[in-house]
Amino acid sequence: MTADSTLRFYADPEEFLAAAGAYLAANPVVSTVVASVTRRMAARRAEGVTLPEDDWWLVVRDASGAVVGAAMRTAPFPPRPAFLLPMPPEAAEALARAWHRRGERVRAVNGALPAARACAEEVARLDGGRVAVAQHTRLHVLDHLTPPAPAPGALRAATADEVDLVAAWFAAFMADADEQAGRPRGTSAHETPDRADLLRRIRDGRVWFWTDGSGAPVHLTAANPPSFGVARVGPVYTPPEQRGRGWAGNAVAEVSRLLTAEGARVCLFTDQANPVSNRLYAGLGFRPVVDMANLALVD
């Protein structure tokens, strides 16, 4: 295979979905990130929002013309990592060479293993540096929900006038997750949704609080709208002073029930370095589907 014959880049998310939609739909759990992000960006474009000029999507085809992989580079945060779905290793390496020819400097590659590592190692060979693991993640899907031990309180949808609290807990989520996984706070690069995006999520009914017996919010769980029948839960955040009381397990279980009632399959990511969250979700009935990694190219 050569890069010219197997790789095609797209600047328009709708054109990418037209080319890769059947491929994404065939394995919607594994494709959840690419599918949900692309649909959100297509909706923004339809609303008249101008997308960054250097965003792209990629379709990988084999010699017969069948789609065998996909990727995107849409992350708004530095170093703007590319995100790869499973693809043949030679295609992942061809992608790195295509970036090199395009003069595109890529210093982080996220996504499914082993494709992401094959791509990152070829980037390192071409452009220098070495591949370091910033984070190992694992994608899980819910088979059959096992209810947790009941906790006081109840789940309720967040409201627009609570957007400041939602924003604060979204921002705290990744820093606290780093700390729980034994990494320095702020190690993991991530997107922090802006106020308009958070309000959109709240108004779409995709952000919930678990409230204690007094009605005060003590935990946040959010989810993405379903893409190809799969809804991804996250973030899941409990402030430090509220942990260990069962809020997270009960909230995720109840959100999973709501999403399942809508007809969606439920999935979520865990950080493999965080034993607490991995035990929690395994206990609720989530099973591993694919290992992924956030890989950095360091000098």
Rank of each mutant, 00 (worst) to 15 (best):
D4Q: 14
D12C: 06
A20G: 07
A22D: 14
V29D: 07
V33R: 05
V34K: 02
V34M: 08
A35Q: 07
S36K: 10
V37M: 12
A42M: 08
A43C: 05
A46G: 13
E47F: 03
E53T: 13
E53F: 00
L58Y: 04
S64V: 05
V68E: 01
G69Q: 12
A75T: 08
P76S: 13
F77E: 14
R80G: 11
A82L: 12
E90I: 12
A92P: 01
E93A: 14
G103Y: 03
R107W: 02
N110Y: 15
C119F: 07
G128W: 12
V131T: 10
A132R: 15
H136Y: 12
V141N: 03
V141C: 05
L145E: 08
L145T: 13
T146A: 11
P148F: 06
P152Y: 01
A158E: 03
T159R: 14
A167I: 04
A172N: 11
A177N: 12
D178M: 03
Q180L: 15
R183E: 04
D197F: 10
L199G: 03
G205K: 13
V207A: 09
W208L: 07
G213A: 11
G215M: 03
H219P: 00
A231F: 03
V233M: 10
G234F: 10
G234A: 05
P235I: 09
E241T: 09
E241D: 13
E241R: 14
Q242T: 05
Q242L: 02
R245H: 14
G249E: 07
A251D: 11
E254Y: 05
E254Q: 14
R257V: 12
E262D: 15
L268K: 11
L268H: 09
P275T: 02
F286A: 03
M292R: 09
M292E: 14
